[in-house]
Amino acid sequence: MRTSKAARLLAAGAALTALTLLSACDSGSDQHPEKEARASEAPLQPQVNRARVDVLPGMPPVEDPADIYSADRPGRLSPAVQGFPSRVYVPNTNSNTVTVIDPKAYKVIDTIPVGHQPQHVVPSWDLKTLWVNNDLGNSLTPIDPRTGKAGKPVDVHDPYNLYFTPDGKYAVVMASMDRQLVFRDAHTMKVVKAVPVSCYGVNHADFSVDGRYFIVSCEFSGEVLKVDTAKMKVIRQEKLPFHGAMPQDVKISPDGKRFYIADMMADGMWILDGDKFTRPTFLATGKGAHGLYISRDSREMYISNRGEGTISVFDFAQNRLTKKWRLPGGGSPDMGGVSADGKVLWLSGRYNSEVYAIDTRTGTQLARIKVGSGPHGLAVYPQPGRYSLGHTGIFR
C-alpha cells in the first residue's frame, strides 16, 4: 500500500468510515463478512491429475495441474540462477534505497540508492534481473542478482507493482494512480498497450493455471478485475461485498481452483472462483491482512496480518487456519517471500523500519533486522522455479 500521495488520505478516510460501520452493524449483515474460523466452502481434496492443460500460447507447459507450484520445491533452482548468491532485497519507500541482507548471517551487507519511493523488488520472467519499482520516481532500477549491482534506470511511469505474462512476452505495470494496466515489452519495457481501468488503486495480481487470464485487486475502490491475458482486456469487474474493502495481495491455490485475496480492512481474505467469477466467500485471518505466501511443499499459505503483528497459517487440504504466530514485541509484517529451502519466511516491517525472519516450522522469530524507512515489497532471491510472474516472486 502506498503512503505518500493524496489518494492515501482519501483511502484513510474511507478506512475510518469502514471501521465505524463495521463496529456499528450486525456481523451477519450482507455488507460485512462473518468472522469465522473456517472458510465456508468444502475442503480441497488434492487430486493427482496429469492431464495436459491448454495453456496460453508460448507459455511453458504446466508440470502438474494438481499442483501448479510443483516447480518451486527446495533445490529446484533454474540453471539461469545457478551461482547467484542468496540475498534478501528490501525496498525502503521513504529512504529511496534497497537494503541487501545476507540471509545466512542475518546481516545487512549493502545499501543501494535507487529512485523515488521504491515499492517492490520484482524478479524478471527470465530470472536474470531484479526490477526495483520506483513509483514516484517513474522508473525501474535493474539489479544484477549475480553481482548485486544496480544498472541504469529505465523510464516507466507510475510503476507501483510489476508482473509478467506467463509466456514471457510482456511486463504488466500496475499503474495505480494512472488507473491503467500497462503492457510493456518484457525486455525493453517499451509500451505495447495501455489498458484504462475504471477502478482505483490496481496493485496486486496472479494468473490462472493456463495463463489465459489474471485476477487484479483494486485497493482504493474495493474491487477485483478479471483480465484476458492475450487480448489485454478487462473482461469482468466486481465490487467486494464489504463496505470499505481494501484488497491487497492475490494468490492462486495449488490446484488452481481458487484465488485468495487479502483484505486489510476486512481483516482477512476473500476466496474467489476465478473461472466462474462468482461472489467470493470470506475467511477472517487477522487485523490488516496483507501478504500471501505459499510454502515450499504447497501445503500451506502464510498470511501477514500487518495491523496486529501476526502471521496466520492456512492449510489448503483442510481449508482452514491451523496456526497463528505472533511477533514478539509486535510489528507490522507486510510483503516478502519464503527462502529457497522453505525454512524461513521473510517479511518487511512496514512501519517499524525492520525485517523479520520467521521459522516456517515453529513460527519462531529468528531475526529482526533494522533497515531503511518504510520497507515494503522485499524479494528473497534466488528461489526455485522455472520462470517468474513478478511481484516479490511468484514462481511456476
Score class of each variant (00 low, 15 high):
residue 267 D to P: 08
residue 267 D to Y: 11
residue 267 D to T: 04
residue 268 G to M: 08
residue 268 G to S: 09
residue 268 G to W: 07
residue 268 G to D: 06
residue 270 W to I: 01
residue 271 I to N: 00
residue 271 I to D: 10
residue 271 I to T: 00
residue 273 D to K: 01
residue 273 D to V: 06
residue 273 D to L: 00
residue 274 G to Y: 03
residue 274 G to S: 03
residue 275 D to T: 13
residue 275 D to Q: 13
residue 275 D to K: 13
residue 276 K to R: 15
residue 280 P to T: 04
residue 280 P to E: 03
residue 281 T to F: 02
residue 282 F to D: 10
residue 285 T to G: 11
residue 287 K to L: 13
residue 289 A to P: 05
residue 289 A to N: 11
residue 289 A to D: 10
residue 289 A to Q: 04
residue 290 H to W: 04
residue 291 G to N: 14
residue 292 L to S: 06
residue 292 L to E: 11
residue 292 L to D: 08
residue 293 Y to H: 14
residue 293 Y to W: 11
residue 294 I to S: 02
residue 296 R to F: 00
residue 296 R to M: 12
residue 298 S to E: 09
residue 298 S to A: 14
residue 299 R to Q: 15
residue 300 E to M: 12
residue 301 M to T: 08
residue 301 M to F: 02
residue 301 M to V: 01
residue 302 Y to A: 08
residue 303 I to V: 15
residue 304 S to N: 13
residue 304 S to W: 00
residue 304 S to P: 07
residue 305 N to T: 09
residue 306 R to T: 13
residue 306 R to M: 14
residue 307 G to V: 12
residue 307 G to Q: 10
residue 307 G to N: 08
residue 307 G to H: 12
residue 308 E to I: 02
residue 308 E to F: 01
residue 309 G to Y: 10
residue 310 T to Y: 03
residue 312 S to P: 06
residue 312 S to Q: 12
residue 313 V to Y: 08
residue 313 V to P: 04
residue 314 F to G: 02
residue 314 F to K: 04
residue 316 F to G: 03
residue 316 F to A: 03
residue 318 Q to Y: 00
residue 319 N to A: 12
